[in-house]
Computed example of a mutant assay.
Amino acid sequence: MSTEPAIGHASTLVTQEMDSGGPTPVGRHLTDWRIRRGLGVADLAARADVPSQLIEDLEAGEEWVDRGRVLSSLAVGLRLDPAELTGQPYMPYGPGHSTVHSLGWYARRHLARMLSADGNGGEADEVRLAELTDGVRVADDDGELASAAQMVPALLELIGSPLPGDADHRIAALRAAAHVAVSRLLRRLGYRDLAWNLLSHACPPPEVRPAVLEEEVWLLLDMGQAELAVARARRESADVPAKVLLPLAVAHATLGREAESERLLASAQEKANSARQRSQVASAGAFAAAEVGAYDDVLGRATGAACLPAGDHSALLVLTASARTRLGQYGAAVEDLAAAESLAPLHTRLNPLTRELVSVLPALAQEQAEALGEIAARLSVK
C-alpha cells in the first residue's frame, strides 16, 4: 500500500486491522462519481495526483478521508466541489437539523431581494441589528446551531441592502458583521455557494474587512481552494491581518508548505493576547498538523486549546478522534467523538469527518460498538 507523503496516505496499521462493513460516505460518493465520469481507478489517480491504492482502499471501505488536501485532490480529479463527495448539505434529520436546514431557503430569498428593485428595505434598526448579529455569533460559538438559525430570518430582514446614500459608518459595519455571522453559519451547514454570495455583498468598511477576509479564507479552504485562499489573503495587503493568520496557516499546510505554516502560527501566537486567542492558535496548529499527517503533533497541540468555544472545541475533538484512530487508540477516539457530540451536537453531526469516523470505527473499536451505533443513529447513518 502506498504511503506517498505528498498526500499523506494512512498508516498500514489501521487499514490492515479494519474489517470494513462498507465504504465511508466519501468512499461511496467517490465510486459513484468515478463511474459517472467514465474513469478507471488509474485514470482518476492520474487526474487527482493521488496513489491508485488510496482510491481502491477508499472505495473498498479500508480507508477514510481526514485531510482537506486529499478531499480537494479527489474533487479536482472528478471536476467536483468537495461537497459532492462529502454529501453536504445533509438532508435534515430531527427538528434541530430541520431548523438549520431551512437557512438555505432564507438565504436565497435574501439574495434575490438584494438583486431586486425593492431590495433596499429602508433604514436599519441599529440596536436590533447589533443584538441579532451578536446573538447568531454567540449561539454558533456555543454550539447552539438551532438557536442561531432561529435568529437568522429576522437578521436577514434587518440587513437589507446597502443604500445608495448610506453614509452611516456604524450601520455599514453592522451590516458587514451580520453578513459574516450568517455566512459562517451557512458554511458550517455546507451551503458554501450561498455563504460566498452573502460575503460578496458585505461591503465592509476598513475595520470589518479583516473579519470578512478571515471568513473568505476559511470558506475557500472548505471549497478545496487552498491556493486561492492564499492568493486572496495576499492580495488584500502585504501585512496580513492577525485574524487571517490562522486560516492562512492551515491553507499553507494543506499545500504542503510546512515552514510557512509554522511561521504564520508563530506570528499568530505572538499577537495572541488572551487565553481564547492562544487556544485558537493551538487548534489551528492541530488542523495544520493533520494536513501533513503528524498525528502525534495533532494531539500535542490540541492540549493547548482548552479555552475554545463549544462549537470550535467539538470540531477539534472530532479531529483528535481521527488522529487517535490513525494511531490505533480506538477507545480514546470514541471517547473524543462522544465528548464532541455532547458539547455541540449539531456541529458534530454535520461535520463530514464525524460521518467518516462513524463508518470506520465500529470495525476497530468493537467494545464501543453500542455507543458508536447510537451516534450513527443520531446522524441517520447506518
Results as ranks from 00 to 15, higher is better:
residue 4 E to T: 14
residue 9 H to K: 12
residue 12 T to C: 01
residue 14 V to T: 10
residue 14 V to K: 02
residue 15 T to A: 09
residue 16 Q to E: 15
residue 17 E to R: 15
residue 17 E to P: 11
residue 20 S to A: 15
residue 22 G to W: 03
residue 24 T to E: 04
residue 25 P to Y: 00
residue 38 G to C: 09
residue 43 D to P: 09
residue 55 I to G: 11
residue 56 E to I: 12
residue 66 D to M: 05
residue 67 R to E: 01
residue 80 L to N: 11
residue 85 L to M: 06
residue 86 T to F: 02
residue 96 G to M: 13
residue 98 S to M: 13
residue 104 G to D: 10
residue 106 Y to M: 04
residue 107 A to H: 06
residue 114 M to R: 08
residue 115 L to T: 09
residue 116 S to P: 06
residue 124 A to T: 12
residue 129 L to V: 07
residue 140 D to Y: 10
residue 141 D to M: 08
residue 146 A to Y: 06
residue 148 A to E: 13
residue 150 Q to L: 13
residue 151 M to Y: 02
residue 152 V to S: 14
residue 158 L to R: 14
residue 160 G to V: 04
residue 167 A to Y: 05
residue 175 R to M: 06
residue 181 A to M: 10
residue 182 V to K: 09
residue 188 R to Y: 02
residue 196 W to M: 10
residue 201 H to D: 12
residue 210 P to E: 12
residue 212 V to C: 14
residue 215 E to T: 02
residue 216 E to S: 10
residue 217 V to E: 06
residue 219 L to S: 03
residue 220 L to K: 11
residue 222 D to Q: 12
residue 223 M to H: 11
residue 232 R to M: 09
residue 239 D to V: 14
residue 241 P to C: 12
residue 245 L to M: 12
residue 258 E to P: 07
residue 264 L to T: 00
residue 275 A to Q: 14
residue 280 Q to C: 06
residue 280 Q to R: 15
residue 283 S to F: 03
residue 286 A to H: 07
residue 294 A to N: 07
residue 295 Y to R: 02
residue 295 Y to M: 08
residue 296 D to H: 14
residue 302 A to D: 15
residue 304 G to M: 08
residue 305 A to E: 12
residue 320 T to Y: 01
residue 320 T to I: 04
residue 323 A to E: 01
residue 325 T to E: 10
residue 326 R to G: 00
residue 327 L to V: 12
residue 331 G to W: 04
residue 337 L to W: 08
residue 350 L to K: 09
residue 351 N to F: 02
residue 353 L to V: 15
residue 356 E to A: 07
residue 358 V to I: 14
residue 360 V to T: 03
residue 362 P to E: 01
residue 363 A to Q: 04
residue 366 Q to F: 03
residue 371 A to H: 10
residue 375 I to K: 00
residue 377 A to D: 08
